[in-house]
Design a protein around this nucleic acid. Structure first.
Length: 724
DNA sequence: GTGAGGCCCCTTTTT
DNA sequence: GGGGCCTCAC
């Protein structure tokens, strides 16, 4: 089959045909990383260096895994099914299903997504009588996940203070609850899989002997546990091929540990390092801007992208008066691009935080320009879908308390919070699941809960033997969900989503018949999972996959985080204001600014031909008008690469723009000659913008945002402030 | 037990 | 400004 090695550049070729030893590939943005990864696998297999079963390739997203699979299928003479290709979580899940007994899990253990996990944490807090004011469920959830991602169980942590002592207790109780209910959260998949390998020498040796080549994508995003997991799997002498870009490490807040790259070099004794620095994506000006920006970061492995493409257009910078005007600018320019023949789907609007999309969406909607927002609530996370899944989970495993609680009273059937509390107490006292504990109750509670249980039993009987999609459809109808949403005034969309869930089940079943991947049918290890349980696992692991309107011709809106790995002909990067991007909360963190800069680097390198950078002098944030300075990152881009679209305009007349301060100085009475919104210069703090004012005459004080110098209150009579 | 209004928070979030 | 969550009144 065609690998087209002759089309690779020398560095790519060196990586693809490297000998069987550990290798670190520093792959810059747009340097053909995925191609190298897949060609490497195909080359290894085709040249007989490894059998398909000896390959383990791991990514972070299902999308990346699927793309690798598809590309491999095109390069290989056979179906790549026998290889272990997937996400960390997907592969950990696969291993746990195959060895569930050794891992101490039921074969049909359910996977908790972040929402389910939060609900589970809340139940633990309640059961232990913890005060959610003092220990917020979200914080406890984050704490548990962070510890799991460090590979630590509750018993292995030394508390730093009283608060952590409480959290460790909650962690232990949470894990206990999960084990009792037969469920596993995302981090648990990895940790349990890691522990399985660490403790079970036989299994470890089996897998370590099996995998001869381990390939890891986006290595800079691995956390400590994932690193250790890989290390165990490689303990049998496998060659680890790690591809990453330290400059694109933007998930530290989720536990990603860039240090893994350096650790890998050291601990694995890596002798070869390949740098992919030739960029095939962007025009020269865009790359030069990206290079100049990222060069300001101190902790780098070092890399400079270059291209043979021309310089292209200069970057366009636009200063908008307000967020609304910035949105209007984006719409206008996007329309112009569309007229000149750029497909809408090749244009992206990127922003730092999700809240920024609203004003842009509003402008796009008004202009009648089709757009699509990525992120937000994903298909399998929608309430109605989760309700339907909860019924299905109860069919598969009645001991699933989380599912029980979610739908016992949905649609409403007279089982209130009080009743469920009584049931929970009974279950705890008897050491049983909620389902079992119904027996222990009496009177009205017993009757209502009994009726619910009968419903589930009936559903199970009625769906036995049906095809997966029919099972799903029947449960939606007979559970009362359908009737409930039909009666609801705004239930139409929810009904549509439930219909879509049936489609998703049908699609899943069809793909599963073809590949046998999710049920493990194609795998010699372990027993196969039934279609319903496989579908439930799929729903948890690939929550975002099922998005409506995927390939539609529409402008693409997303956060910079969500854009990683993607590319567009034209990119708008909106909201380049100090405090927003870089985000003010990042500045307090150690090396927070560097991570923000990497984020900006990721944003810039998404663009192929055109890049528009914009910021707004005023922005509605949390219901208040905020005044901001341009992002410091704009200053870090060499001026020669940039064209200011509407040159920084002179101060508009005050009347034209009467900005609303939180506590406006008395109307028409500027504080000591200064106005809110005005640009000023201070001899020590430099340029700033007045964001608030109070008093007048000799008492007048103004609050000035000096960007990186901070926000300060100054007495006008004393401070040497001058209009900019 | 259920639904409506008030209160609080508010970066990013591949799985 | 707005969504999720909780409390309070029926």
């Amino acid at each position: 089959m065609a690998l087209h090695l002759e089309q690779l550049n020398p560095e790519q070729l060196a990586a693809v045909t490297a000998p069987d030893e550990h290798l670190l590939v520093l792959a810059g943005a747009g340097s053909g990383k995925t191609r190298v990864l897949t060609t490497r696998i195909a080359w290894l297999v085709n040249s007989g260096r490894v059998s398909p079963a000896g390959v383990l390739a791991v990514t972070f997203t299902n999308k990346a895994a699927r793309e690798m699979y598809v590309r491999l299928a095109a390069m290989l003479a056979f179906d790549p099914r026998g290889m272990w290709i997937g996400t960390f979580h997907g592969l950990a899940n696969r291993m746990l299903r195959a060895h569930h007994r050794e891992a101490g899990l039921p074969r049909e253990f359910q996977i908790l997504d972040a929402q389910d996990q939060l609900a589970a944490v809340k139940r633990v807090l309640r059961a232990l009588g913890a005060d959610p004011e003092r220990d917020s469920p979200r914080e406890v959830q984050a704490y548990i996940n962070a510890r799991k991602e460090e590979g630590l169980r509750a018993g292995e942590i030394a508390p730093a203070d009283a608060r952590e002592r409480r959290w460790i207790e909650l962690y232990a109780a949470y894990d206990e609850q999960c084990r009792r209910e037969g469920v596993a959260d995302f981090a648990e998949l990895l940790l349990a899989s890691y522990e399985l390998l660490a403790r079970n020498a036989l299994l470890r040796e089996h897998y370590a002997a099996r995998f001869r080549h381990i390939l890891v994508d986006e290595f800079q995003d691995t956390n400590r546990l994932q690193y250790r997991w890989l290390k165990l799997l490689a303990s049998g002498g496998a060659a680890v091929f790690a591809v990453g870009d330290d400059d694109q490490s933007i998930y530290r807040f989720r536990g990603a540990h860039v240090g893994n790259m350096a650790d890998f070099e050291r601990e694995f004794g890596v002798r070869r390092l390949v740098r992919l620095e030739r960029n095939y994506r962007s025009h020269g000006n865009i790359l030069a801007a990206a290079n100049a920006l990222i060069a300001r970061n101190r902790h780098r492995l070092g890399k400079n992208l270059w291209t043979e493409a021309g310089a292209g257009e200069p970057l366009v910078v636009y200063e908008a008066e307000s967020d609304a005007e910035e949105a209007a600018f984006v719409v206008e320019q996007a329309q112009a691009l569309a007229r000149s023949g750029v497909p809408l789907s090749a244009i992206a609007v990127l922003y730092r935080s999700n809240a920024q999309s609203r004003v842009i969406e509003h402008a796009l909607f008004t202009a009648g320009l089709p757009y699509r927002v990525y992120g937000g609530l994903r298909f399998f996370e929608r309430a109605e879908v989760k309700h339907a899944l909860a019924y299905l989970r109860l069919l598969a495993h009645p001991g699933d308390d989380a599912a029980f609680l979610r739908v016992a009273n949905f649609p409403p059937r007279g089982i209130g919070a009080r009743t469920l509390e009584v049931l929970a107490d009974a279950a705890r006292a008897r050491g049983e699941s909620l389902w079992q504990a119904v027996e222990a109750l009496e009177g009205r509670a017993r009757q209502a809960l009994g009726a619910f249980r009968d419903l589930v039993v009936r559903l199970r009987a009625e769906t036995a033997g049906l095809a997966l999609a029919e099972q799903v459809a029947h449960v939606i109808a007979a559970s009362g969900l359908e009737a409930h949403y039909r009666a609801e005034r705004e239930g139409a969309e929810r009904l549509e989503n439930l219909g879509e869930l049936v489609n998703a089940a049908a699609t899943f079943a069809a793909e599963e018949r073809a590949s046998g991947l999710a049920t493990g049918a194609g795998d010699p290890e372990g027993e196969a999972l039934d279609p319903l349980n496989a579908f439930l696992a799929h729903a948890a692991l690939e929550a975002g996959e099922h998005q409506a309107g995927e390939g539609r011709e529409a402008l693409q809106l997303m956060t910079v985080h969500a854009a990683k790995g993607l590319e567009f002909d034209a990119v708008f990067l909106a909201g380049l204001e100090d405090g927003l991007f870089p985000h003010e909360q990042s500045l307090a963190e150690r090396d927070g600014l560097e991570e923000e800069r990497r984020l900006a680097y990721v944003a810039i390198t998404r663009a192929r031909h055109r890049l528009y950078l914009s910021y707004a002098r005023t922005r509605m944030l949390h219901g208040q008008t905020r005044y901001a300075l341009p992002s410091r990152f704009l200053d870090e881009i060499p001026p020669g690469l940039v064209r200011w679209l509407a040159p920084r305009r002179p101060e508009p007349a005050p009347a034209a723009r009467a900005p609303q301060a939180r506590r406006p100085a008395r109307a028409g009475a500027p504080a000591g000659g200064f106005r809110v919104g005005q640009s000023v210069v201070h001899p020590k703090f430099g340029a700033g913008v007045i964001v608030d004012a109070e008093g007048d005459g000799a008492e007048a004080r103004v609050q000035v945002n000096f960007g990186r110098e901070g926000v300060k209150w100054l007495a006008v009579a004393v401070a040497k402030l001058e209009p900019a």
